[in-house]
Structures are given as structure tokens and as C-alpha cells.
Design a protein around this nucleic acid. Sequence first.
DNA 1: ACATATTTGTTCGTATGTATC
DNA 2: CGATACATACGAACAAATATG
Lengths: 267, 267
Amino acid sequence: MGPMERQSGVALWRQIADQIRIAIGTGEFDDLSALPGEVALAKRFSVNRHTVRSAIASLKKEGVLRVEQGRGTFIVQRTRLRYPVGRRTRFTDGLADQASTREGLLKSHAMENANSAIAEALELPVGAAVIRLDSIGTADAVPVSRGTRWLDAERFPGFVNIYRKLGSVTASMKVFGIEDYVRIRTRISAHHADPETLEDLRLSPGAIVLVTEAVNAELNGRRLEYSNTSFAADRVEIDVDHSIGQQGEKEQSQDHVAGDARKGPAG
Amino acid sequence: MGPMERQSGVALWRQIADQIRIAIGTGEFDDLSALPGEVALAKRFSVNRHTVRSAIASLKKEGVLRVEQGRGTFIVQRTRLRYPVGRRTRFTDGLADQASTREGLLKSHAMENANSAIAEALELPVGAAVIRLDSIGTADAVPVSRGTRWLDAERFPGFVNIYRKLGSVTASMKVFGIEDYVRIRTRISAHHADPETLEDLRLSPGAIVLVTEAVNAELNGRRLEYSNTSFAADRVEIDVDHSIGQQGEKEQSQDHVAGDARKGPAG
DNA sequence: ACATATTTGTTCGTATGTATC
DNA sequence: CGATACATACGAACAAATATG
């Protein structure tokens, strides 16, 4: 094991917290969900026991660990939401069978002029009027995504009101005569979350977001929507399906269930 | 703008360095002209000028910024490598037109018994003999990925020696009579890098990796290969192509060019 | 009930790093 | 460049809860 780096701008306890999180993710502590004791962890990471304790305290606050005096430290089981991405991706449906309550809260909207990235994606001239919708996605009362989408304003007049009423992009598009659409491409990257996203997704500094930049189009290839969505990386993973069949979202269902986001354990 | 958080285990100067990196990524600063001055940045982030200086010093060491005495601070242009993922993804070919030199260095290999994840992916019984290959991917002399792949040992006897000779998975598979194969699924997540990956990819603590977990199969659906690859998130982004045509890798070519990884600018 | 080992929880002190002024 | 306040990290010791035999 490589030693933790010092003077890197990231506190030792936080580096260790990250390592423990990873180790949990890879199933390294599979035995009965109990972690090694503080002294053992301190030895493993070559740090003082207090430093390990700080790391554990942080993970406890995040809801990853649960500590019981005299007994030990335990992993709070929480399955990562699996967000399916494929040719027939529908955002709202995607998490349907994984979370008991999901919601797409429209946070704000505006009229804008397309910058080069938006223009290219929607195949519009730069400066064209576009509708911008900002929303936050929630599963089981936990925010999981924060996204912005842009649509051609000329093509979808009054989209905002319709969307507000119907609560679904797919349904709103039907009003404009679009019966079907497909995902053309999805670009995926990962970054540290910016302060605004940090707040919206209730994350702590240094947290990671998975960013998807997607383009949806009609079956004939005409661009419909360009979106940019940030997912809390510790709560979501992306599942790309490359099959070419006529399968709908059903095939992407998994036997996974969203974890019950336990909060405030007996502490 | 949200204020930087204190007592978070991440030093202010590092949080600011991350924010500047993000701002550069989103094109917030004009690529060619200088960054705002230290005092302006200090005001923007509500911190002392010295703290901004530490952040800039760090980014300078990373090769993101270049400082010229009396003139200002400038962005060192570096395009993110775009790694295409689709039904017909071939790893070695993927970055072909983006980097002038690319390499898949075989780091180590071993015989293993399949754990549940590997067994499920390859549709083998748990405990079946599998070949494990660890390699590091390099583009323009910069490490960009670190991956492990597993193959059915019974099906590919002596694969390691053939792969060592040919240097390509696609070519090696041909030796075993496999003319064509397709990507079935790709699962994507993001984490902090573990110490070993940190070292292999020459990253600093707190760095992010994009992890792809992929399954390749023959056209008839028979599983061939299961892989788990970590990409340095600040050097790579993933481009998912959902098209169903017969297009090969050619269509995924982009007009992007790998940045010249400038090192050690005039300090 | 008892002693003992193990585990987490707390309180001192001290040194160094970080951030401001 | 200091001077100051606070966060981080270490070390030692002790207290409290739990598990074992």
C-alpha cells in the first residue's frame, strides 16, 4: 500500500476517509460489514489513531458508517443507484424501479442565446434563441442530480408551462407531435463539484460529480434537446447498454434496490 | 458564488485550485488572455491573496497554468482525450487519431479464480480459472489509464504470450478464431483514486478516476472479456455513441488533437 | 458475578501546517 | 517578512461500553 501523502492540500484524515470509502466500494471489508478496529486501520495507513477517528467521524456524518462504542464500526449498506443510458434512455423512467420516490424538480428556467457548444449540439446557428431548464433530480428524498437542458425556442414555444404541468419531458414533447426520440450521444466526464452543485446535491467539498452531456434527436436525426447533468458520483453509477434490439427500458432493470438513506443513526 | 468551506479536510488553496481548474474547463476564462489578477481572484473567492497564490503555484506545478512575471497568469492549453465507447469499441484504436504515440504496457499478469463479479460478467461458474492482465495505457508519454482484464483461461490457453507478441487484444483474439466481437455493456462510475492508481497515473491525492467496467462478447453473445479500467478524469472524457449503424471506429473520430503535454515551462 | 481483552470515547500536551492581517 | 489564530497530526494516558470465558 502506498503511504498517504502529506502537505498535498488534502488533510490526511480526508484521504483516509476516501480510501475507506473506496475499500467499502470494492468489497474489501466484506466480513459482516464490520471494519477493522481503529488501531488496525491506524497501522494500515501509518497514521495516528486520532487521524483514523477523524476519517471515521466524517464518514459517519456522511451516513456511510455507523459506530457503536465497545462493539466496532459498521458499514451502512447503501446501494448505488444505477442510471441506465442507452439509445432509448428516458430520464424520469430510468430510476423508476430503484427508488420508491423520484422527482424532477424544476428549479429555474430562462431564455438564452445558444453559445457554440449548444448550437453545435442542436445544429442551430450560434445565437439562436433557446429555452433553458434547470432541474434537480431526487430519489428517495436524496438529491442525486442537477441538470440543465436546452431546447430550440422556436420549435417548442411555451414548453416551460407544459412541462410544469406534465412533469415529464417525454410527455411534453408528445404535445409538440414528437412520438418518439432517441439518444444520439452521451459524453461522460468527472470533476470536483463546483460550489453551487455542492450545495444543490448536499455534498461536502472535494466531492465528485459524474457529468453527462447528452443529445437527443428524432428518429430522422433532427436534434431535439441538449442536456448537461451532474450526478453525485457516490450515489450514482452509469450503465451504458450497447445492445441494438428493440428493447425498452425494461431490459435495463436490475435486481438492485435503492438503499434506504438512513439518517441520524443513534449517535 | 458559494463561499469556500473551511474545516472540510481540504485546504482552501486546494479548493480554489480545483475551482480554477473547473472554470478553465468550462471555458469561463478566455483561453488566450491572462487570468484575472491575484487580487481579483482573492476577492472572487473571498480569501487572502496569499491563498490564491498557493493555489496558482499548485496549478503551475501541475502544468495547468503558466506565470509570466509582470505579464500575468496564462492557461496552458491541453485538450482532454476523448475516449470513444460504443458497440464496436476497440481500446487500442480508440485514441489513435488523438495522440501521436500510444501504448498499452502490460504491467503484470496472473492466473486467478473468478469471483462472483467476474463470473457473472463472463457467464462462468464462480471459481473458474481466468487469466488476469494488468496494463497501463499511455498517450504521448503521459499515463492515462490503468486497467485489468479477465478472460476465460480454458478458452484462451497461452493468451499472455500471444498478446505480448502482438500487443493488441483484437489481434490476439483472431489467433483463437474470433474475427469479430462487440461491447455488450459499459458501467461507468467515478471515485477518488486509490494510492496504487495514484502512483501509476502520476496523480496527486484527491485526484479523480473515471472507472469503466466493460463486457465484450462474440456476436452470438458468448462472453469473451471482462475489464475494469481507471482513467485519469482530468485527462480523459468518455464519448458514448448510441448509433446502430454499421459504422466502425472511423465515425467516432473527432477533430480533437491530444494536447502537447508541456512540462516545465519557464518558471 | 468476575476478570480480562477488545473496542470506541475523551482529555491532556506538543508540533506543524494553513490562513489572515 | 513577521505575528496571530485556528486546523491538523501525533503521542500517551485514561474512561466507558461490550464480548468472552
